[in-house]
């Protein structure tokens, strides 16, 4: 397990002892997805189909962009009511690469607004202004 944040991008990786075909379904089947993230999911795993996820009181909304079983799935991502990260603002790409009988998962979340803020703490005022813009 590891994560990096750089230039508005978060990369997370994980090694899983199962084949990509098995792991892939955990990104497209609501019952399987919610075993590891969120409480409730409405998924339509076709390009243009919905990727809606309720995590506690936070609602994430997105759209599947690329669905290529069993190796690649991408979807847009955003949070209802969050102006810094509105629905559709960023994209998540998941690449599943076989590693023997196992799978290497590389998840890349691009287009995050926090980017510039990390480099300049004073940027938080700008960030807040964005959050507060109505």
């Amino acid at each position: 397990m590891s994560a990096e944040v750089h230039d508005g991008i978060v990369i997370a990786t994980e090694h899983i002892q199962a084949a990509p075909e098995v792991v892939f379904r955990y990104f497209t089947d609501p019952a399987l997805l919610t075993t590891w993230i969120g409480d409730l999911a409405e998924l339509d795993p076709l390009p243009g189909g919905r990727f809606d996820l309720v995590m506690g009181d936070v609602r994430c909304r997105g759209t599947y962009l690329v669905v290529e079983p069993p190796h690649r799935v991408t979807f847009s991502w955003g949070i209802d009511g969050n102006r810094a990260l509105p629905p559709g603002a960023s994209t998540v790409e998941v690449v599943l690469t076989p590693d023997g009988d196992d799978t290497m998962v590389v998840l890349t979340h691009r287009g995050l607004p926090e980017n510039r803020i990390e480099q300049h703490r004073a940027g938080w005022e700008h960030q807040l202004a964005r959050l507060c813009r109505t």
């Binding site: 397990m1 994980e14 090694h15 899983i16 002892q17 075993t35 995050l112 926090e114």
Partner: peptide, 30 residues
């Protein structure tokens, strides 16, 4: 607290993938 939001997604995905690993490997034991 705004800084904790900044870190939200950086923490979210590694923790989520860690749960994914557990869920998959428990459902499909070798």
């Amino acid at each position: 607290p705004l800084e904790s939001v900044r870190g939200l997604l950086a923490e979210l995905w590694p923790e989520a993938l860690s749960r994914l690993k557990r869920a998959v490997e428990e459902a499909h034991p070798r």
